[in-house]
Structure formats: structure tokens, C-alpha cells
Design a protein around this nucleic acid. Structure first.
Length: 277
DNA sequence: GACCAGGTCATCA
DNA sequence: TGATGACATGGT
């Protein structure tokens, strides 16, 4: 199937560090979303080729309803964002699955993207559902049910370290309370964040990532080391802002689309570390 | 081998 | 509220 006319930078959107399961193989991106194998290839201007093992709502996954021009426009009063958004046009926030996002970002803390990717791959390979497609074997990200049979010690052996207990507890909570994380979409940002943070090992940052990347809260502004670095350099040169101060500032300064601003700042900081010194 | 990584939590002033 | 260190481990 060919998708036309989407303002979407496939490569940057898939590899800017928000999703961990996309692999570049044979000139295409291969991934598994909602238990389906998805293969994507960028064609000439604004066309994409999509193959999948089952129905895939790419419009929803890539959030094609988000009007990027309008979002960029909402940052036009900022001294830096017009330049930064222009460097990565078409980079979109993805709408990922809440459970996968929660577990992935619990794992991500104080780690690095290559390691996070590898760990999540191992987790999927061991406990996810095996899917054959086009002669290749893929694995879905495991469900809470599938992970509920895994001991904390097994997570530890996979290299999760102290995060093993957090993952184990989060899985247990989802199973015990028959917790459908999607219901958090209907709650306010603050309510949903409070609920997520009631999980051990889920603090400000992980909660914001889950809210932004899977629960439609575009006002979430995850602050990690990279974001703190670039925000401090670009906007707070005379003093060192506290975590709380950065959050207040981001909400006031960027408003409803703070999450998009965050992702562009994060990506830019990683592409150009020298721009933060 | 040192330093760092998409943090969180407990503890103490 | 704000500062500090422990937590496990692997990438560079």
C-alpha cells in the first residue's frame, strides 16, 4: 500500500529515541505494532510504502491529525524553536501502546538508547508472541499477561538491574487490578500523571514519557539529562533551574504542544551535543 | 578503566 | 524544598 501526502519524516520519527523497536534492514524499517509486523519504506516526496501482517492504522500511529505547521507556529515567539523545528521538518510524536511504553521507559532510566533497544528486543524475543511474515520471524512486545509469568530474577538476569523489581511490580499491578492503561487517556494530564507515579520506579520523567508517547497528553514535557542540558543552555544561562522550575517554565512557555517542543529539543541536543555547551 | 546513560527513592539539613 | 548518594549494568 502506498501512503501519499503525509507530512512525515519517517526516519527521524522512528529513530529519534521515542520508540525502541524499529529496525533498519534491507532499506526498510521493520517493526511490530499491536501484534502486527509493519514494514515501511520512504519513497519520493511525501510517499511511503507500507506492508503489514494485518490491519494497521498508520494515521493514528503517526498522529497524522497533528497539524505540524500549526504546532511549529505555536512556537514562533520562541527565540530558538523556529530554527530547530526547521532542521527536522516532519518529525512526529508517535502514538504507541501504553503498556509497552510504560515498561520500555521504566527500563530506560539511567541507561542509553542502544542498551534500552537491546534489552527490549530480548524481552520481546523471549516472552512475546512469535509472528512469521514474508519468510522472517518477528516477536511482539509481550503483553502484561505474558510478562506476569516472569520472575524478578529472570528480569535481573537479562540485565535490567535494579529496574527488575519496578517492571515486575508494574506488571503485577496491571494484572491484579485488570488495569486498562488506555482509560488514562480520558483523565486530565495531572490526574493521569499522579496515577502513573503511584507505581514504584515511575517518577516525573517516566510518567511524562508514557503520557506523551502513548496517552495523547501533548502537554507533557519529559525532562531528562539531555533536555535539562539544552534547556539550561538555551533559556537559563544565568542560573541553574530546578526540575520544578523547568516544568513550570515549559508549561507556560510552550503550552498545549510542550511535548512536541520537548522532542525537538531532545533530538537536537542529541544530534548536536555541542549546541548545549 | 573512567565516565556516562531519556531516573527514582530515601535520607538529611 | 533542595542537596546528596545508592542503585545495577553496559556502551563508548
Amino acid at each position: 500500500m502506498i501512503i501519499r501526502g503525509a507530512f512525515l519524516d519517517l526516519q527521524t520519527s522512528l529513530t529519534c529515541g521515542q520508540a525502541f523497536r524499529w529496525k533498519w534492514m534491507g532499506n526498510q524499517y521493520h517493526g511490530v505494532v499491536q501484534g502486527k509486523v509493519i514494514i515501511l519504506k520512504a519513497g519520493s516526496y511525501e510517499t511511503f510504502q507500507l506492508k503489514s501482517s494485518g490491519p494497521f492504522d498508520y494515521h493514528s500511529y503517526f498522529r497524522l491529525d497533528d497539524d505540524l505547521e500549526k504546532i511549529y507556529g505555536s512556537f514562533s515567539g520562541d527565540p530558538h524553536m523556529p530554527t530547530i523545528t526547521r532542521l527536522y521538518p516532519g518529525m512526529r510524536i508517535l502514538r504507541q501502546e501504553p503498556f509497552e511504553t510504560l515498561i520500555s521507559y521504566i527500563i530506560s532510566q539511567v541507561s542509553n538508547i542502544p542498551r534500552i533497544t537491546r534489552t527490549i528486543e530480548t524481552l520481546s524475543h523471549r516472552y512475546g508472541t512469535r509472528i512469521r511474515f514474508n519468510g522472517e520471524v518477528y516477536h511482539s512486545f509481550p503483553s502484561a499477561e505474558q510478562l506476569s509469568r516472569v520472575r524478578e530474577s529472570s528480569f535481573r538476569k537479562m540485565g535490567l538491574g535494579y529496574r527488575a523489581r519496578y517492571v515486575r511490580n508494574a506488571v503485577q499491578r496491571v494484572i491484579d487490578d485488570s488495569w486498562d492503561l488506555d482509560t488514562l487517556k480520558k483523565k486530565s494530564y495531572d490526574e493521569a500523571k499522579t496515577i502513573l507515579m503511584s507505581l514504584e520506579g515511575v517518577g516525573d520523567k517516566v510518567a511524562d514519557c508514557v503520557l506523551l508517547f502513548s496517552l495523547d497528553k501533548l502537554e507533557a514535557f519529559p525532562v531528562d539529562r539531555w533536555v535539562r542540558r539544552i534547556v539550561k543552555y538555551l533559556y537559563f544561562q544565568d542560573y541553574d533551574p530546578s526540575e520544578k522550575r523547568i516544568h513550570e517554565w515549559a508549561r507556560d512557555h510552550f503550552g498545549t504542544f510542550a511535548g512536541y517542543a520537548q522532542q525537538y529539543l531532545f533530538h537536537h541536543a542529541r544530534q548536536h551535543p555541542e549546541s548545549c555547551n
